[in-house]
Amino acid sequence: MVMISGASSPLYAKRRRRNVITMGLSFAATAFGLSWLVLILGVLLWNGFSGLSLAVFTEMTPPPGAAGGLLNPIMGSLVMTSIAVAIGTPLGMLAGTYMAEYGRYDKLTTVVRFINDILLSAPSIVIGLFVYEIMVARMGHFSGWAGAVSLAVIVVPVVVRTTEDMLTLVPDTLREAAASIGLPRALMITKVAYRAARAGMITGVLLAIARISGETAPLLFTALNNQFWSTDMNAPVASLPVVIFQFALSPYKDWQKLAWTGALIITLAVLALSIIARLLAAQRKSS
C-alpha cells in the first residue's frame, strides 16, 4: 500500500514529468538532426538532377552564357585524387604499421598518435597555405602537383589512424603462429598481419578518398583552377570543388546550374564511397 501511495505522490509525478520532457527533447533532437540530411540531399537532388546530362561528362567548362560540361574539372579531380592517394597511402600505411607492429608501446608511437589525431582535424585551409609555402612559392607558379600534395597531406592521417587501429585488432596468436614457423618479422607483417587486416585498411583508404574528393580549401591556392583541358600537372589544374566554388558565387544562371550538378556528382561519389567502406567494415565484423 505504501508503494502505491508513493507512486502517485507529487514528487514521483514530477520525476516522471521531467523524464518524459527530456526524452521528448532527445526524440525531437534526433528528428531535427536527421531532417537536415534529408533537406540537404533533397535540395541537392532536385537542383542537381535537372542539369545532369551526357554533356556534363563530355564537354569542358563553358564561358558564361554558353553550354558546356564539367569534363576538365572531373578529370582534374580524378587525377589529383589518384596521385594524392598514391603518395599518401603507402606513407600512412607504413607509419601505421610501425605504430601497431614495431613500436606499439614506444614513446614515439604515443607522440605520433597524438600529433596524427590533431592533423586529422586540422583546418584544411592551413594545409593549403603550407603547401603553397613549400611548393607554389618555391616553384613560382601554381600546379596540379601542389594540389595533389596538399590532398596527400590530408590522406596521410586518415590512413595512419585506420591502419593502426586495424592492425591492433589482429589477434596476437596469428603473429605468434607466424613467428613459430620462423617467419621474419617483416614477412610476418606483410604476409599475415596485412592480410588479416586487409578489409579494414581498404576501408581506411576509401574513407580518405571520400574525405579529399570534396576538399576545396587546400586546392584554392595550390592547384588553382583552369578553364581548359590540361594534362600538364605542372600547370594549374581545374578541380570539381573549386569549379563549384567559382560557379556558385558567379552571377550567371547557367554557371550556377553547373555548380549544382557538380555538387550532386561529388556528393553521390562521397556517399557511395562511405557506404562501400561501411559495408566492407561490416563484412569484416561478421566474418
Binding site: A248, A259, I275
Partner: peptide, 14 residues
Amino acid sequence: IELLAGIPSIIFGI
C-alpha cells in the same frame, strides 16, 4: 548521422 558528417563542406556552402 555519419553520412551527414561525410557531406563535403562545399555542399553545405552552396
